[in-house]
Design a protein around this nucleic acid. Structure first.
Lengths: 144, 144
DNA sequence: CAATATAGTTGACTTAATCAACAAACTCAA
DNA sequence: TTGAGTTTGTTGATTAAGTCAACTATATTG
């Protein structure tokens, strides 16, 4: 029986989150890895992404996400923008403070990325990403 | 800027945990994915693994692990065995009920594995595992 | 229009992870 | 061999992450 594919994955994610947290801490922002993840998505799609879009993309529970966004708004990093075509939802935008934070985060994150990727080729990374996506898709098709 | 390598990983782990939980639930055991992970390690190294060994291997916090093990013992799946060469620690063993549970879990897990791996070659899986281990090691060297 | 579906919010809860303090046992060097 | 420092495991306290159900308000569609 070949070793379980999940064990190294659990280990890797554990290490990533730990490194990420340290990187964030050192910048002394009051954010968790999950905040970071969401904040980055918002900044990439500034004023063009709704809470539900993020739910679709990440599969984060919508209740959890609502609270996360509330916190990011409370910290002044994120703003709500009316969605004129659907009054139930709103577009998420990023404030100038938010932009600044994302910049700092990106630097910290980049450091972690470099450490993580050392000794691997671009092709390795591309393969890895492709396989991860493929497997996630396999699993999600079962459950949606 | 190439897409972040972490995002698909977060997604994958999320999906894995969800699938695993469903698979476990359907067997109606009172175990979480983390219980499952630890229980399997104990069963593989029956009577030859200490709490600390598991901490070393998984990087799970030792406090968290102590409680997990206590629960597994409470459920009657795991037993403690004196370690004659070190009275601080003890070897972990698995009960006959535990063996039975691991069998059930393995079946459920195997189903998830098959779904996850569909469309991938053995080589893909081997590559993926190798890369995951490599990256985890890169990160851990920074922090230990 | 009425039935149904969707977007987001809130409450309550479980699971996972972290950190610090501690007791008991162990190690090893002076 | 003893005592300073380390390791193993435990407990307490807390934070982060994930889940589920109920609900409001708005949209969609037959």
């Amino acid at each position: 029986m070949s070793e379980n594919i999940k064990e190294p994955l659990f280990n890797l994610l554990h290490s990533i989150k730990r490194s990420l947290r340290q990187a964030i801490d050192s910048n002394d922002l009051q954010l968790t890895p999950l905040h970071m993840r969401v904040l980055k998505m918002i900044s990439f799609n500034n004023n063009h992404v709704t809470a539900n879009d993020i739910v679709q993309k990440t599969l984060i529970d919508k209740a959890q996400l609502a609270r996360l966004i509330k916190e990011l708004i409370g910290l002044g990093y994120v703003t709500k923008l009316d969605n004129p075509t659907d009054k139930r939802s709103y577009y998420l935008g990023i404030s100038s403070e938010g932009i600044d934070v994302v910049k700092q985060l990106s630097v910290a994150e980049q450091r972690v990325n470099e450490i993580m990727k050392s000794g691997l080729t671009e092709q390795d990374i591309a393969d890895f990403t492709r396989l991860a996506k493929h497997m996630a898709q396999n699993l999600n098709q079962q459950n949606d």
